[in-house]
Amino acid sequence: MATEKGAEEGGLVFHPMDQFIVKPLFGDGPVGLFTITNVTLWMALAIAAVAALMILGTSRRAVIPSRTQSVAELAYGFIYKMVEDVAGKDALAFFPYIMTLFMFIVFANFLGLVPMAFTTTSHFAVTVVLALLVFVTVTIVGFVKNGAKFLGLFWVSSAPLALRPILAIIEIISYFVRPVSHSIRLAGNVMAGHAVIKVFAGFAAIAVVSPVSVVAITAMYGLEVLVSFIQAYVFTILTCVYLKDALHPSH
């Protein structure tokens, strides 16, 4: 115990996961359903950022766009084209839904990179719900549009007959693993990057190491900016791929 205490006094204190703790903003009470916490604050900021870009940015409806309007149009075109290319024209009915997912994830990720921020997408509670929403939507759409033919997704008709039951089991397992990988990929990437930055920051307490630490944090931060966008992109494009399976289940 004494040695442990000595180490802490030496300055090496690592609390890389403290940044993910859900805390009430007012008072110290327990976290109830409607408590205003840092989760509430940063989700509200995400809404504000989306609204600022997509509504205020396009408020002039200019044929020759301003810079903000260009970014909004770019985001629109990016997701619209992705849905059309990956999931097909008949998936465009789901475009607002997919756009919502993308805008929320991308803004939550980027807002999480603000120093001292709370990253909502680093929590499994959030990403599991996002992934389950996609999973449930895709499954329901699959059955509504194709009926029992949707089960053909698991029955690989191009494989030899003897192999088909085995493949069906594998396909069913992979289908149900989808929401797990879908959610853990996003939260895991975001959480790992933030935790690593915090660990590097902890090393900065040693004066000799601190320049290296600052460089490492800067490099990690750059990587995290990339990861923030790429994970939002990956989540969205996988949603499109799953949606394509639901709309056109034939292998």
Binding site: V22, V31, A51, M99
Partner: peptide
């Protein structure tokens, strides 16, 4: 708690996008 506020956020963003922005 998180799921509640997430649903609120998603619904708000959905309506902001589908009714006005898109």
């Amino acid at each position: 708690h998180q799921i509640f506020w997430l649903m609120v956020t998603l619904v708000v963003i959905y309506f902001v996008l589908s009714r006005i922005a898109l």
